[in-house]
Amino acid sequence: MSKDIQAIDQLVHQYGDLKKEIAKVIVGQEDVVDQVVLSIFCKGHSLLVGVPGLAKTLLVNTISEVLGLTFSRIQFTPDLMPSDIIGAEILDENRHFKFIRGPIFANIVLADEINRTPPKTQSALLEAMQERSVTSSGQTFKMEDPFFVLATQNPIEQEGTYPLPEAQLDRFMFNIQVDYPSFAEEVAIVKGTTGDHKPVLEHILDGRTIMDIQALIRRVPVSDQVMEYAVRIASYTRPDNPDAPAFVKDYLSWGAGPRASQFLVLGAKAYAATRGKYSPDREDVRAVAEPILRHRIVKNYKAEAEGMTESSIIQKILGAAAEIS
């Protein structure tokens, strides 16, 4: 246990150095950076939702560089085939079949505009996310650890898209909203990107260290009260739960499954550890609840008509769960 305490103390310094290095390139977006890094420490995947031009690709590329990981970007288009992602077999010069690995074989994979490709191609990526392996011609190829998928989605341009079904969205640990920068941040962005200065990034971590951090996060102890609190929050999103608040039954047609409870606990562990706490409390669960639940609840017509957002419903659920001691 004393070794884990020392490891958490060291993680706090590593996390601070990591954020400083990322800030050399990425101005603002602290919550976005925080959530992406937390998902990596939890061995989870993230979906980044934001309009074009908000540096989502640059953010992912920067994070992969400071983490010392290999990076691959896949631009999803309507004509993209599964073999364009996972690779294909070809005949080599000796007339033997040889598997040529696709861009999915990287530590961090950016799936750009994932909803622009048909379900068959989406499923090829989602198999790799869930199983951490791909299958081609009856052969299974394991992904190299650590492995993360960071997908992006444009929330405003839905023409010619194939929205991800709820069951597939559930594979993502976080749904991260990327918003416009503030005025001061945008001025800083323009100053930093219209000159000839190019920041030099240092590797703060490496693949082996990240895997050690993932194992450390799993070992962080959680009290039964905090675990029950996380499960209560997830269960309160389900309209058919007799204990769910009345507004949930009014506004939601579907709620989060057990995977949400698992991610709430894991996310709280990582959030607490990166802030020097040796065990998470309710505040840590609440801190990660919104990006974990946002894509796991389905609003009904009444919620749409009354202008209720996922965020406002989640905040009401957190309030209702906090009232139960």
Rank of each mutant, 00 (worst) to 15 (best):
V60L: 09
L59N: 02
S253P: 00
M211V: 14
A321H: 09
D224Y: 11
F183E: 15
A256F: 00
Q262T: 14
G44P: 08
V220I: 15
I213N: 04
I108C: 00
P258D: 11
L91G: 07
K302D: 14
I176R: 01
Y301L: 15
I204T: 04
L80Y: 06
R219C: 11
A246G: 09
L69P: 00
R73E: 05
R208E: 15
I210P: 00
L164Y: 09
L150C: 03
G138P: 06
H45Q: 09
R296G: 02
V36L: 10
D179H: 15
D34I: 01
R294G: 06
L216E: 06
S133C: 10
I189Y: 12
I314V: 05
N107K: 11
V134P: 00
T62H: 05
I176D: 00
D196Q: 15
E283L: 04
T193P: 05
I233F: 07
I217D: 01
I189N: 12
D212M: 14
E283Y: 09
A23N: 15
K56Y: 08
Q35C: 03
V134C: 04
N300E: 10
V187L: 14
Q10V: 08
D281C: 03
K299G: 00
S137G: 10
A246W: 13
E127I: 06
A55S: 15
S72D: 11
L264G: 01
Y15D: 01
P52Q: 03
S312Q: 14
V33N: 11
G138L: 13
V33F: 07
H45E: 06
A244V: 12
T274W: 01
Q139E: 15
A234D: 06
Y278A: 00
N61S: 14
D9M: 05
L110C: 02
I26G: 02
V37C: 06
A128I: 01
Y278K: 06
Q139C: 08
G267S: 09
I189H: 12
L266Q: 13
M81I: 06
D196G: 14
Q315M: 11
R208L: 13
D281F: 00
L11M: 10
I233T: 09
I63L: 05
N175S: 15
A111P: 01
L47N: 03
K43E: 12
F263A: 10
E306S: 07
R73C: 06
E89R: 10
S235D: 14
A55G: 12
A289F: 00
L201F: 07
G50C: 02
E131L: 05
F97E: 09
G195Q: 12
G267C: 08
R282W: 04
A7M: 11
N175I: 01
L205M: 13
P146S: 12
D17H: 04
I26M: 11
T117I: 11
L126N: 00
I313P: 03
P199Y: 13
Q6L: 14
T62W: 01
H96F: 13
Y251I: 08
R259H: 12
